[in-house]
Structure formats: C-alpha cells, structure tokens
C-alpha cells in the first residue's frame, strides 16, 4: 500500500507530499504523523505541499487536524510551498487554514519553526546564537 514517507530531521519531522492525495492516503498520513510526533518527541512538523495542485475542504481539514493534534502534543506545524493558485482557491472556498503557520519554502519553514519553538520554550535559540 502507498504511503507518504515521514522524514526525521533533528527535532523536526518533514513530510513531502508528491502525489495528489486520495482520502485514505490523507487519513493514514494524519495518523502516521501523530504517531511519529509522539514516538520521536518532535518539536515541529514541516509539511511541504509545493507539488500539490489541489487542496479541497477535505485535505484542508486533514492539514488543520494535523496542526491541532500536533499542537496539543507540543509540536508546531508549518505548511510550506503552497502554490499561488491553491492559496487563492482556498481563500475563495472559505478555508483560510486558521491556526496553521505557512512559509514560502522548507528553509523558511525551518527558520519559522525554530523561532516559534524558542518563543514557546522561553529558552534562547541555539541556532540563532551561532548565526
């Protein structure tokens, strides 16, 4: 069975969605990801959707769910690389993905995650010091 791979990168989990998701696949991703967050104690989840050409309300809900579930497990979610046409469509559809943070690309997403984790922990960000 097809599966979306979840990569571990230090304190973060990275998911790159390369195919158009059908429902079962999306639902599996949701549960896999939450499992992984719990197992690895990840502090952040990056979802790269730069290859996704369609997000309908179902997919939008899955993304929102992942963000909310991760949040209560103390991990931040950042969605990166949304295509302009997808963003415009989501807004018109009435789905602004409230509570989900977005970034332009994976690199910016990482920065955002680091700054948010530093913010919630109240501890100084190690990476920021070395920069």
């Amino acid at each position: 069975m097809e599966k979306i791979p979840i990569l571990r990168m230090g304190p973060f989990l990275l998911v790159t969605i390369q195919v158009d998701l059908y429902d079962r696949l999306a639902e599996n991703l949701e549960s896999d990801l939450v499992q992984m967050v719990s197992k690895t104690g990840a502090q952040g989840v990056l979802i790269d959707i730069s290859a996704v050409s369609i997000i309908d309300s179902f997919m939008g809900r899955i993304i929102g769910n992942i963000a909310s579930m991760s949040k209560i497990m103390d991990a931040e979610t950042v969605v990166v690389g949304m295509q302009p046409a997808v963003a415009i469509t989501l807004i018109e559809l009435g789905l602004p993905l409230k509570g989900v943070h977005c970034a332009l690309n994976v690199e910016r997403g990482m920065e955002l995650l680091r700054s948010r984790i530093a913010l919630t922990d109240g501890t100084p960000d190690d990476d920021a010091d070395t920069e």
Binding site: S53, I54, F58, A85, V86, E92, L93
Partner: peptide
C-alpha cells in the same frame, strides 16, 4: 488559466466527494 483551473477542479472535487 491555472487559477481558474484550480478553482474548477477544487469545486469538482468537493461535489464529487
């Protein structure tokens, strides 16, 4: 155009769902 295509396909996706 790409934006209108995306809107149409998304609408189709909602309705078929």
């Amino acid at each position: 155009g790409l934006v209108n295509q995306t809107k149409l396909i998304t609408a189709a996706s909602e309705l078929v769902r």
